[in-house]
């Protein structure tokens, strides 16, 4: 995979994080699971996914598009 393709994948990954930060597919759902609304569990899990994605970004793609020289 070229560098440029990987950059596009990061943009897509970030976009997915933004779009599903609100669980639109649970709109109107009122189920309570283990003491919290089901959609709140989605939020908690999604923030974990976001953290992991951001961590991977800092490891693999940091500095992209910043015009930085290292060293």
């Amino acid at each position: 995979m070229t560098r440029q393709k990987r950059d596009y994948l990061w943009v897509v990954a970030f976009a997915v994080l933004v779009v599903f930060a609100v669980p639109w597919f649970l709109w109107g759902d009122s189920r309570i699971v283990a003491g919290l609304p089901l959609w709140l569990w989605w939020h908690i899990g999604w923030m974990g996914v976001a953290s992991a994605t951001f961590y991977a970004f800092t490891r693999g793609a940091w500095d992209r598009g910043m015009g930085v020289t290292r060293g």
């Binding site: 994080l17 609100v22 609304p37 709140l40 999604w46 923030m47 910043m66």
Partner: peptide, 26 residues
Amino acid sequence: GPEWILVMGLMDGILFAILWYVLGYK
């Protein structure tokens, strides 16, 4: 209702984090 938690998640957890990189790191 508690939906504000989702607003906070989208706003602070995701969008602000991305701005932290795109704007803050720059």
